[in-house]
Design a protein around this nucleic acid. Structure first.
Lengths: 215, 215
DNA sequence: ATAGCAATCCTTGTATACAATATGATTGAC
DNA sequence: GTCAATCATATTGTATACAAGGATTGCTAT
């Protein structure tokens, strides 16, 4: 419950951008937005500043702000960066997670398994997110955690796509189990390696999909 | 040369925050800033939004924006994250840097050596920055590069501190040479490991210094 | 007909005016 | 004397008015 209209509008716009409501390069007209949100241009402009600063839009002075949807190349780069961030979290988490953290991680993993058995994709994605977030937290580095959470959120919409690939779900679960095992054993490098490829493969699957569409 | 006052002000404020002009928790008074910059509150507010979004300040609705200087704990976390980002860059760069990139890196390293011989600390820090930036670029992932550059910039002011430690400069140079060698050999994991500890040690030195001051 | 120029309109950027809320100070009651 | 409540003031949040820079359209000249 934000108090400032600008904040509410920023969140809403962010959601709209994420959900692909805007085309890449589309100009965000201050007047139109002001009408849509039934406010003046002032809060709109402040919300746009937020989008620009967070990299979701580009501002050209005296011209306006234009939304920037990441293209295939940038998405691949983001997935690769995510993979490295997750690997880093795993490395650190392996020596820092408490027994309680590991128990939570095990629970989250079980709930992932369960979701698959129920063939409940929504639940799977939700629990999968939780699984990874527990690892971010386990790194015991709130700055790194924040970076990881931000990028995870940014990639959320695109991560679902890998679902389409046959057998990916089972493979994903196997990797989860490996990750859990390595973290329990305090095997930092192994945990990092599995996490890295676990995430990187998502980018590759995404790439395959893009390529197959453009064929 | 920004066209918008808000942009100029945002950059200036950013510099002021970096240079420690503001205390942690200090409120940024819109009216005072407006007077100082000889503008109205509007561009000031838009500049403040930028600071808040980039995490340099916190906004409490109806109360104002308060600057957030990272404390020792957060700084350590940032150094640790930087270490992981640099390791990631090194890992990727090891297999992606061109001969030309490697030549540039060697040149930068030579200029670092030279700066040390000249006992020119300013030049050393400038060239050291370049050395690392060439590796970021070498990762051939512009998103990751951007993240690394951002954090490097954020930590700039604090990195200088390690200089105070006897023998650190020579050690640093030795590490640089190792990194260069591993990158030339395409030894991804070794390059990553050396880079990680090369940066992580800065955080540790920083920690030592803080501890010694508070003693 | 097309290219170049000019004028008008549209949009962004900035200033100011107005509204609403939080803070703190003063007054009154217990 | 202290605590609480209310009122005044200061500051943020929003709206509107004004300024200035592009973009588009139409006209003219070649």
């Amino acid at each position: 419950m934000d108090v400032r209209l600008a904040d509410q509008i920023a969140s809403t716009l962010e959601q709209l951008v994420f959900s692909g409501e805007f085309q890449d390069g589309e100009r965000l007209d201050e007047l139109k937005l002001a009408e849509q949100f039934h406010v003046s241009r002032t809060p709109i402009r402040e919300a746009l500043q937020v989008l620009v600063t967070s990299g979701m839009a580009e501002q050209i002075p005296r011209r306006g702000v234009f939304i920037r949807q990441p293209g295939p190349v940038e998405l691949m780069e983001m997935f690769e960066t995510m993979a490295e961030l997750e690997a880093a979290c795993g490395r650190l988490a392996a020596t820092r997670m408490t027994d309680q953290d590991l128990a939570s991680l095990g629970d989250a993993n079980d709930r992932c398994q369960q979701a698959i058995q129920n063939a409940d994709h929504d639940q799977y994605y939700s629990e999968n997110e939780t699984f990874h977030q527990i690892i971010y937290r386990g790194a015991a580095n709130s700055y790194l955690e924040k970076q990881a959470l931000q990028l995870q959120n940014r990639l959320k919409a695109y991560r679902r796509i890998q679902l389409r690939f046959r057998g990916r779900l089972k493979q994903s679960m196997d990797e989860h189990s490996q990750i859990l095992q390595h973290l329990q054993d305090g095997e930092a490098e192994r945990a990092a390696d599995v996490l890295r490829s676990h995430v990187a493969v998502q980018g590759e699957k995404f790439h395959q999909l893009i390529a197959s569409i453009n064929r």
